[in-house]
Amino acid sequence: MVEVLYFAWVRERIGIPREQVETEAGTVGEFIEELKGRGGRYEMALSDLSSVRFAVDQQLAESATEIRDAREIAVFPPMTGG
């Protein structure tokens, strides 16, 4: 089980801030495809992957980042701090 966190408009579109997910995915990209495969809100929130960023165990990650031993995956829009 991995803890999945959503932030900003990704959180609003999916409708929840976090959830536990059972996954067999090996990479972030595969994991996101699994989520999109749920359809509905997930498919809508994740339809444009160029506008979504990821972190694995609180480190910024890419689609190819391995998640085999990950405890936490976060999905969010490009950051707008400062």
């Binding site: 932030f7 900003a8 829009p77 707008t80 701090g81 400062g82």
Partner: peptide, 14 residues
């Protein structure tokens, strides 16, 4: 540091 905070620190403004 400011350039980093703008686009790599996990903040989102609404």
């Amino acid at each position: 540091l400011m350039d980093y905070l703008k686009s790599r620190a996990p903040f989102w403004k609404k």
